[in-house]
Write a protein that binds this DNA or RNA. Structure first.
Lengths: 126, 126
DNA sequence: TTTAGTGTCATAGTTTAATGTGACACTAAT
DNA sequence: ATTAGTGTCACATTAAACTATGACACTAAA
C-alpha cells in the first residue's frame, strides 16, 4: 500500500478498505485485520489505523465485537454504494466536468472512461 | 474563496490561479495581485501566498519583476494545458474510471459529463 | 530625496497528523 | 487460572502547514 502525499493516511486507509468492500474482496460479516495486525502490515502506527476504524464505525461500515475485533457490517455494501455515490456526485463530479471543459478533453482522450460507462449501460439493461 | 479541509491551502491557491488562467480571466502578461494584497483578500498569511507564487514560478507559470510584482508568463496557457492534462491523465483519470466501475455509474448518471465531452468533440472538428 | 508598494528572508508560535509506548479491560482457548 | 489476541485510552514526541511579525532591498512615482 503506497500512500499519497496529499491526503491524510487515516483517510487513505479508510478509502482502501471501502474499495476492498465494493469490489467484493471483503464481504459483509467477514472479520477485518486487527488494529495491530494491519498497522504492522502497512507499516503505520496503531493509533492511525485505530483512527480509520473509528471513522468507519461511525459511518456504520464496520462493527466491533469486544475482545474479538472489527467485522464488516451486514449492510455495508448497500450503505457504501449510497455514501460513495453521493460523495462522488457532490464532491468530485463537478470538478471533473470543469476540468474536462477547460482542458477541452474529447472522446478520444477519454475513450477508456467512455467504454466503462457504456459497459455499465449494458449491464443495467439485463 | 473557500478552502477544502483535505488539501493544503497553498496548493488550493495555486489551483485557483491556474484555473483563472485556463478560463481566460487572467491573461498572459497580466499582473497578478501582490503577495500582501491577495493574502489580505482571501484572509491568509503572506507566507502562504508567497509559497504558492514560488511554486508557480518554479513551474514557469508566472514571472517576477523585481520591486514590481508577479506577471503571468507569456506561454502560461499552453504550458498549463500541457501540465494539467498530464496530471489529469496520470493522477486522476485512473481513479475516476475505477470509481465509475465499482459504483456502476451509467450514461444517465453522467449525462452532464457526456454532454461536455460531446461538445468538445464538435469544437475540435471546426 | 522621500514615500509607498513590491518581493524576500528570518524568526517564533500554533495547530494537527502521525509516531512511539505503556497500560488496562475484554474474549477465547489452553 | 493462565495466556494470547482483541480494542482502547493516555501520555509524550516529531514533522509540517499555517500564522504572526519584523526587517531589508528593490522599483516607481511624488
Amino acid at each position: 500500500m503506497d500512500f499519497s502525499e496529499h491526503k491524510n493516511i487515516f483517510l487513505q486507509i479508510r478509502d482502501w478498505l471501502v474499495d476492498q468492500i465494493l469490489i467484493g474482496k471483503l464481504q459483509p460479516g467477514e472479520k477485518i485485520p486487527s488494529v495491530r495486525e494491519l498497522a504492522a502490515d502497512i507499516e503505520v502506527n496503531r493509533n492511525t489505523v485505530m483512527r480509520s476504524y473509528s471513522l468507519m464505525e461511525e459511518e456504520g461500515i464496520i462493527e466491533n465485537k469486544r475482545g474479538i475485533g472489527f467485522f464488516i457490517a451486514s449492510d455495508a455494501t448497500t450503505q457504501l454504494q449510497r455514501i460513495q455515490k453521493r460523495e462522488f456526485f457532490e464532491q468530485e463530479l463537478p470538478g471533473i466536468i470543469h476540468k474536462v471543459e477547460v482542458l477541452k478533453l474529447n472522446s478520444q482522450d477519454l475513450a477508456q472512461l467512455l467504454q466503462v460507462i457504456q459497459s455499465n449501460d449494458h449491464e443495467n439493461k439485463q
